[in-house]
């Protein structure tokens, strides 16, 4: 039971966005995909969720996702898009319910409210989605995604959360809140695959980190293994320094401004 992406190649016209990338994500873990802009992070997530045409194979809990119907996929995994879009003025709670048709919580009416409470927006239930700020809208969409796969494990199979930059429009307090939610989901037996920009949040919350660079997989491992001076500086093409402040010994990434300018081509 895992999510396996094998030898994934994605092209946009002539441009190869991903070249033969493989990644395996285990339930019980938060797997973070990091890398500079344009390195193929969201493209990899798009292929793994079946929203982009790709070469290679993606297996979700042992099944090739190409052979699965949309509703079968929706029952096993939920996907948080990078931007929260909604065309018509649904209320917040109606928006959360949109995810319930094929998810595991379909017949449990209390789930949407509980999901909203989890992201701290229970009191917004009856507001119009269009009146929310960007960060609030993003959290409502997270609640929708959580409601869709409410039980992290169902019938002995792990459920999966795919998060595309889940904290990009959030303040630091809510960044931590959202990452805590992701970690809780994983620690309850589900799996989380998240595209991340913030390396320090990644170091704090990810169990495994995959670093993409120019459409190829540069390194995969625990934060301590791959979040190193050499790997990160190579991936992001700038000087980064990783320290390990006590007591937790979690990598902490600092820009090394003085040298940065010289190493830019």
């Amino acid at each position: 039971m895992s999510v396996v992406a094998e030898d994934i190649t994605v092209s946009y016209g002539q441009h190869r966005a991903l070249r033969g990338v493989s990644l395996k994500a285990q339930p019980g873990q938060v797997t973070a995909i990091v890398g500079p802009n344009g390195s193929g992070k969201s493209t990899l997530l798009g292929a793994m969720t079946g929203s982009l045409p790709y070469l290679g194979e993606v297996r979700l809990n042992g099944q090739d996702i190409r052979s699965m119907k949309p509703w079968a996929l929706a029952a096993q995994r939920a996907v948080l898009p990078q931007t929260a879009r909604l065309a018509f003025p649904f209320t917040v709670i109606e928006t959360v319910r949109l995810g319930l048709q094929f998810g595991t919580a379909g017949d449990r009416p209390e789930v949407p409210s509980q999901a909203l409470a989890k992201v701290g927006l229970a009191h917004y239930a009856n507001r119009s989605f269009h009146d929310l700020s960007g960060g609030e809208a993003q959290r409502v969409m997270l609640a929708r995604v959580l409601a869709q796969v409410w039980a992290p494990v169902e019938n002995g199979q792990p459920r999966w959360l795919f998060l595309d930059e889940p904290v990009s429009s959030l303040d630091i307090g809510h960044q931590l809140q959202v990452m805590e939610i992701a970690r809780d989901f994983a620690q309850s037996g589900g799996g989380v695959i998240a595209v991340m920009h913030d390396l320090n949040l990644t170091a704090l919350y990810a169990d495994r980190v995959a670093i993409l660079s120019k459409g190829e997989m540069l390194a995969v491992g625990t934060p301590n293994e791959v979040l190193t001076d050499a790997t990160l500086s190579a991936a992001y093409e700038c000087q980064l320094r990783v320290s390990h402040p006590p007591p937790a010994d979690i990598p902490f990434i600092l820009p090394h401004a003085a040298v940065t300018q010289n190493t830019r081509p």
Partner: peptide, 17 residues
């Protein structure tokens, strides 16, 4: 209803778009 969130998300919640 699902399509209101865009085609990709509609597919992700289980709709044959």
């Amino acid at each position: 209803n699902g399509l209101a969130m865009g085609e990709a998300t509609a597919a992700h919640i289980g709709i044959d778009v």
